[in-house]
Nucleic acid binder design. Structure first.
Length: 119
DNA sequence: AGAATGACGCTGA
DNA sequence: TTCAGCGCCATTC
């Protein structure tokens, strides 16, 4: 309910790992929360990826907007206080079509991470 | 400490 | 295709 403000609080190692991985998603490419979790060896922790991105102090150079849900849409919810619409704008600006409901062609823009992933 | 809450994901109706 | 119901698990209340 209350929106915890991460500003000022040091990001934990989990946040750092999520951010560093998301930072290498190329322009106009998309990844899902579950995909990011999996690449970090954390299968089943998609929600935690969402939280890590939620803690990003905005504005940021990290392309957090390139992470969407597995259904191929932006999770639109008032609890995001507008970051969902910002995400839509940023994606459209990169050339990815997003409809009014937040749905987008995930298959066409899916990011194929180069292997091996080294950190 | 226990309950509630999600920027999730999968299954089944 | 949409939607409800669950399982999931760190964070919050």
């Amino acid at each position: 309910m209350a929106r915890p403000d991460a500003g000022g609080l040091p990001a934990g190692p989990w946040d750092q790992r999520v951010w560093r991985l998301v930072a290498r998603i190329p322009t106009a490419r998309l990844a899902t929360y579950g995909q990011v979790a999996e690449l970090l060896g954390a299968w089943g922790r998609a929600r935690q990826v969402g939280w890590a991105l939620r803690r990003l102090p905005l504005p940021t150079a990290i392309p957090w907007h390139r992470v969407v849900n597995a259904r191929g849409s932006i999770t639109m919810t008032p609890s995001r206080e507008g970051s969902d619409w910002i995400q839509r704008d940023l994606l459209v600006a990169e050339g990815i079509p997003v409809d009014a409901r937040g749905r987008l062609p995930l298959d066409r823009f899916r990011w194929d991470p180069p292997l091996p992933l080294v950190f």
